[in-house]
């Protein structure tokens, strides 16, 4: 059993109005010193078996196929623990 994390973020050149709205809200709440915020998605994938190379290759394929739209988003895969 292993848990694999896929982080999906809008590509840097794609406008992220949600992140901008959060960045504008933080000073109003008293949080200072925040230059910018980008919002993304985190997927926690529980594998039945170990997170070996074959399983990770599968997870990357999941990310390419469904979890991320690679036209506008980048993804990163890592094993938790």
């Amino acid at each position: 059993m292993a848990r694999v994390i896929v982080d999906v973020m809008l590509k840097p050149e794609i406008l992220d109005p949600q992140g901008q709205a959060i960045a504008r809200a933080l000073p109003r709440l008293g949080f200072e010193g925040v230059g910018a915020v980008r919002q993304g998605k985190r997927f926690e994938i529980e594998l039945d078996g170990p997170a070996d190379e074959a399983a990770l290759a599968d997870v990357r394929k999941m990310a390419e196929t469904l979890l991320a739209n690679t036209v506008i988003e980048d993804y990163a895969v890592h094993v938790e623990g």
């Binding site: 809008l10 794609i14 406008l15 109005p17 949600q18 709205a21 739209n69 036209v71 506008i72």
Partner: peptide
């Protein structure tokens, strides 16, 4: 159509939210 790659590009959150 964009998600299916029948048309290029993508539709994202309105800039105004």
């Amino acid at each position: 159509l964009c998600e299916a790659h029948l048309l290029p590009g993508a539709l994202t959150r309105n800039a105004s939210l």
